[in-house]
């Protein structure tokens, strides 16, 4: 066990050195973002090397911190460079793109709610992303922000129930499970939709 850990540690730190050397040499801002994201994966490797349930639980916060910082920093990059989404006609337009999104998104979101938890959020998010891809999504975006805020509040409430009223643990688990559904869904719905531009 100990040897395996040492070897893993050496490999991970060697990988980190290579990754950070690349960042030292890189001059382009966009590539720096990408390399930074790569380096963060290696931090998760260091946590995963511990190989306990605790490590598995710690990977989730680590991952989320990386993703959310990436989101904020890339938005700063877009603002900094003044990038605009070009106004081009969609490549093709067919009838099914008008009718399908609503139905499919509904099915996926409903299924996600049944699953609940992390995977449920991902499934529901696929529905939302599909909807946004086919439709204009200016006003829905505000909705996602509101949902994300509520998810945060529910989560905090669940935490306080766990800490101060532990006998209601089942209620708190359900609240947290629902909140993670909303949170993951809100997060994943943003993939590829948050671009610069006038009214996007």
């Amino acid at each position: 066990m100990s040897t395996a850990y040492t070897v893993g540690l050496l490999v991970a730190v060697a990988g980190l050195i290579i990754g950070f050397m690349a960042i030292v040499r890189e001059r382009d801002d966009l590539h720096r973002i990408l390399l930074t994201d790569l380096a963060e994966v290696l931090a998760l490797v260091l946590i995963a090397l511990v190989a306990t349930d605790l490590a598995e639980a710690l990977i989730l916060p680590g991952l989320v911190v990386g993703i959310s910082e990436l989101m904020a920093v890339s938005e700063v990059y877009i603002a900094k460079e003044g990038l605009q989404k070009p106004h081009i006609e969609p490549a093709f337009h067919i009838e099914v793109m008008d009718s399908a999104p609503g139905i499919l998104a509904l099915i996926l979101v409903a299924y996600g709610i049944v699953l609940s938890g992390f995977t449920g959020g991902a499934v529901a998010a696929v529905g939302a992303v599909f909807y946004f891809m086919c439709r204009d999504h200016a006003e829905q975006f505000e909705l996602i922000e509101t949902v994300s805020g509520y998810a945060w509040v529910i989560w905090i409430a669940a935490f306080f129930i766990f800490m101060f009223l532990p006998q209601y643990w089942l209620f708190a688990v359900m609240m947290a499970g629902g909140a993670i559904l909303l949170k993951v869904m809100a997060k994943m719905s943003l993939v590829g939709t948050m671009r610069g531009g006038s009214n996007v």
């Binding site: 950070f20 931090a43 946590i47 710690l58």
Partner: peptide, 14 residues
């Protein structure tokens, strides 16, 4: 700040 999360989490993991 993004890069800094690597040594932070790495240090905690070690």
């Amino acid at each position: 700040a993004m890069l800094a999360t690597v040594p932070l989490f790495g240090g905690a993991a070690i």
